[in-house]
């Protein structure tokens, strides 16, 4: 936890307010992010942008990140190109499918009002 932010704000991670599942197609990782509570949807739409995810996953995702906003489902869908070190079938990585990347996204810091 950081203590450097403004007194009314605190830094948490996405894991506190959202859940995520990762899927793969070739060398593309698809991260589906869902807020637990509807009232947090605006906050993730504002902070968890394609650019923010690109920066957070810079050591993993080599290609472009496309974001789909799905208000009806309280969900954001991130389609991350060149994310699987060449893809399921020829990568030398341990997690060839990138199945565990859901929790890499959930490790992303977010700012939210401290009092809940």
């Amino acid at each position: 936890m950081s203590t450097e932010s403004a007194p009314s704000r605190s830094v948490r991670t996405l894991h506190d307010i959202a859940h995520c599942r990762a899927g793969d197609k070739g060398d593309t990782s698809i991260l589906s992010l869902f807020v637990y509570r509807e009232e947090d949807f605006e906050l993730v739409v504002e902070q968890v942008t394609a650019g923010a995810v690109t920066a957070h996953l810079k050591d993993t995702v080599r290609g472009e990140v496309t974001r789909h906003v799905l208000p009806q489902l309280g969900a954001l869908q991130f389609v991350c190109a060149h994310a699987l070190a060449g893809g399921v079938t020829t990568s030398t990585a341990l997690d060839t499918h990138g199945k565990a990347l859901s929790f890499a996204l959930l490790a992303m810091p977010i700012e939210s009002k401290a009092a809940r």
Partner: peptide, 15 residues
């Protein structure tokens, strides 16, 4: 929640 996670699983373009 379980259904939503599966609905978007491995979907390149939800639309």
């Amino acid at each position: 929640r379980t259904v939503k996670e599966q609905l978007l699983y491995e979907v390149n373009d939800p639309r």
